[in-house]
Design a protein around this nucleic acid. Structure first.
Lengths: 164, 164
DNA sequence: TTTTTAGTTCATAATCAAAAGAACCAAGTA
DNA sequence: TACTTGGTTCTTTTGATTATGAACTAAAAA
């Protein structure tokens, strides 16, 4: 019986340290620990396409933690994978572009909040004019903000096209 | 001994329903349940200035939950309070303006992420040109975004001044 | 057909955050 | 001085997340 060799990918001191900080940042953003560290690894590793076992052994995760983490990230489209003919393994890859798209959803939640503010406006008593106008003010600010966001996207796109 | 009367503020069906949805939204944004419901209450209540006991009894919170929730919100400056001469009670009030400021901190975390992206750029191997350029792309996008945000603030300010 | 590979799923354990309730305290009041 | 008011702090309990390891499955290889 052959001794099963390690699949862990080699990481430099620097890579390891950045991995830790990235994954801490991800945890702070509400991403669960295992998923955060997987995302981080795929960002700093020299190989950009890693297998289940490479991920698992590099990060010292259990099989189930790895499986759950990967599947959550696949659902969130934070990572994707490719396959190679004659190879059952999947090679997981960070979907960096999804970060940009996930901005969109941030602003979706802002627009939900804006809708709630509107409901507050409608439901409030008329007796608290000062408070009501501060709500009105916030509402108008967020509305304006949400209008301007897509323009920034567009302006960046055109700017980038110019630079190519 | 006198029977202690209830301090709960009266809420209409609609107010109560909106209170729930607001506080759920707050929880979704990472604010802890008790704090979220306190914020929500101060947004929808006809009285904008509520005492400790009014908050506690309206929301059916324990004393400690109320105390902790209030103190967290005070620290985050989401609420403030006023006092009245000859009255030991504090009257808590939603600090609606703080919502606008809290945008700023949202973008602070974005700028932290941007700094991390920069570190990734610096540390990455040169062998993965495609991946590296997608990181570069994201970095440039976020950087541009962060530059444009303050301009939106300014534009809104001037627009609002015109309307007064 | 049996074994190996590449995972998934399930039951359970460990960890962590939030709430409850009681005890406590400080300032004012009777 | 003792009691009440308006809270705060501490300890315990509850509940939710996260991780673990073992059992399981489906496809391919031997």
């Amino acid at each position: 019986m052959e001794k099963s060799k390690s699949h862990a990918v080699p990481l430099s001191e620097k890579q390891f340290e950045l991995l830790e900080r990235l994954s801490n940042f991800g945890c702070g953003q509400g991403i669960q620990p295992a998923a955060a560290s997987i995302t981080a690894l795929l960002m700093i590793s020299d190989k950009t396409e890693l297998t289940f076992d490479e991920i698992r052994e590099t990060l010292n995760l259990s099989k189930s933690a790895t499986s759950n983490g990967i599947n959550q990230l696949l659902i969130a489209e934070r990572i994707g994978f490719i396959t190679r003919t004659g190879d059952r393994k999947r090679y997981f890859k960070s979907n960096v572009a999804s970060w940009k798209e996930s901005f969109g959803s941030q602003f979706q939640s802002l627009s939900k909040f804006c809708a709630l503010l509107n409901e507050i406006k409608e439901i409030r008593t008329d007796n608290t004019t000062e408070f009501n106008s501060s709500i009105e003010d916030l509402y108008s600010f967020i509305t304006y903000f949400l209008e301007e966001i897509p323009k920034i996207y567009q302006k960046w796109e055109t700017k980038r096209l110019e630079n190519i």
